[in-house]
Design a protein around this nucleic acid. Structure first.
Lengths: 342, 342
DNA sequence: TTGTACGCGTTATCAT
DNA sequence: ATGATAACGCGTACAA
């Protein structure tokens, strides 16, 4: 009862054609008579033929597979981008191979290598800052890759993202414009994270242009999570005092929301005693705090564009080397009340 | 300058052994002299040899690849499970192929087929309720699969998850114990989602045991998001009035949090006028609302177990057909009794 | 327009 | 312990 899965040769025989013709027919080649094509397709359907990807990949030297190497999937920041990526790929009959390295550059090299062994036709990375060894492997494997979420200052790699530094500077500038002069930053871990570093650098640059310094003690690194935001804010308060700063720039949504929650828990009014700005990767901010000013990052676009660019390149089309995604400072009203404790 | 990538035959020649020996050496077989093995490994490293996955898969009939078919990656509910899955697989030199269908059963069949074509050695699904066609394809392809996040009432499939219905009944029971008698439910979309349906059924069962009915008008379907929670609660209030219900059961975290946010925005005290319980898939609740009672779902465990089970089965070991993950009702303080009037 | 035949890079089965 | 060689299933020049 357990039949051997049908192979292309079975389909060919059933349709009364040769292997080559069967192959062409199923590939939709124009070289076969429409009539023949139908016949082949019918027998394929009848036999429940499922192409054998490995054999196809071996012969065609293409796997119809794209790899994505993320720091982690568990961070909602990357979820919508990954979803969009996967969707766009599926539309083009490509499939996504996913790997994560949890901010460990060694692990990143390892998982990337695993993807290369799987024969991915292209790769998506997060950020442009990677172990040199990674680039060696990439170039030797000759796999087109597309870093996202950041731009390559050197203009060396293809990439699609936005200028984290400038965006973050706009956040700080917004606070400056509101009259704030004492600042603090809640950042994600800066190690092995060029996006986070750029964002801090942006704040520093904006403040510097007004002669304000941002010493290291005013920057707290904390996990990318609500708990991280809460704990980070407590750490800042402990270090600098409750009125050590009135303007707070957060590295991303989850941290910003955590900070807001901590404010609510401590009875600190926002905006008021404290004004918070941050990056809105995941669009939670709008719902949670209509008062929160954010840089809105269209994560889904990033994923979609990455897919489109990669597929275009595989198809031999040329794409602009660098694609800058416009990001927008969303000021959600300054009079909104602080979030309540729930 | 662009060298052809090194093949196994190159390694073999460089090491002065045959193809077969080289293969065995790199596979770590005990049948080769330790000395020979070293020699082979050295030349492999020297040449920068990278195994060709497709060829290996073709010859060995194994891709060292596992597929996961999710409703969507964009929902944080699935993120930590997927992360855990990916991590566990990577540890065993497996890679994750990811696909999503956005709650469309047709799409689910299509993407699953795509994964099967890619030659996945195993598959993970969400829930046990799928198009019959899906099971046809699966059995014909003879791919072991592991539904997660639910248990199979028929005991037909392997699976790892928990009893959504009973868990949800515990939520409702908790509210009953607090004296609540008027209920409403904010569910995710019920269509093509057995988990959501089971959760509603659980509430209904618990209430029925106290002679309380839950007519359809008291159940609102809303997107799995904060916005969905907010909008859904508004819809319920509009339909049933502000004091049409004092106990609210939410289908998951995001919805529950959205509801809480809406309460805050409308000045409704929680717990007080309203008591909310829900599923805590993503552990936001603890940070956000120390008062929220939830069923805590250890998503990461689900992913890890799915990986372990699948890999065990591939290794020929037997695993218990069904694995029930314990879930826990977490009462986070200030339990609200039902309001004392009428 | 269709068929023949070779190659893709590995693993696995025999011998030795 | 190692080597020769036949699969593995498909794509694609090249021939017809």
């Amino acid at each position: 009862m357990k039949k051997r899965p049908a192979r292309l040769s079975d389909v060919a025989r059933a349709a009364g054609v040769s292997l080559a013709t069967a192959s062409r027919a199923l590939a939709g080649s124009d070289l076969v008579l429409p009539d023949t094509r139908e016949r082949v397709r019918n027998s394929a359907a009848l036999l429940g033929y499922v192409p054998h990807g490995a054999a196809r990949a071996l012969a065609s030297r293409r796997s119809r597979t794209i790899g994505a190497v993320l720091p982690t999937i568990d961070n909602p920041i990357f979820a919508s981008a990954t979803q969009a990526l996967s969707r766009a790929l599926a539309n083009a009959s490509y499939t996504l191979l996913l790997a994560s390295h949890e901010y460990d550059p060694q692990a990143e090299v390892a998982v990337t290598r695993a993807l290369i062994e799987r024969g991915v036709d292209g790769l998506v990375f997060v950020g442009v800052d990677h172990a040199p060894q990674l680039f060696h492997e990439l170039s030797r494997a000759d796999v087109p890759c597309e870093p996202v979420w950041a731009l390559d200052p050197g203009g060396f790699h293809h990439c699609v993202g936005f200028a984290n530094r400038e965006a973050s500077a706009r956040c700080a500038q917004h606070l400056l414009d509101l009259g704030h002069r004492r600042f603090a930053v809640l950042s994600g871990s800066l190690q092995h994270n060029d996006r986070a570093r750029e964002r801090v650098a942006g704040v520093r640059a904006a403040l510097a242009s007004r002669g304000i310094e941002l010493p290291a003690e005013r920057v707290v690194e904390t996990p990318f999570s609500l708990g991280g935001g809460r704990g980070g804010l407590r750490a800042l308060w402990q270090r600098l005092g409750r009125d050590g700063f009135t303007g707070l720039v957060c590295g991303n949504d989850l941290i910003a929301l955590g900070a807001l929650i901590e404010c609510a828990a401590q009875g600190v009014s926002v905006p008021g005693a404290l004004s918070v700005v941050g990056f809105d990767d995941i669009e939670l901010s709008a719902e949670f705090s209509p008062a929160l000013t954010t840089i809105h990052v269209p994560s889904a676009d990033i994923g979609r564009f990455a897919a489109e660019r990669l597929l275009s390149r595989l198809a031999g089309k040329r794409v602009p080397r660098m694609q800058e995604i416009p990001v927008e400072l969303v000021v959600r009203g300054s009079t909104a009340r602080a979030p309540r404790r729930l």
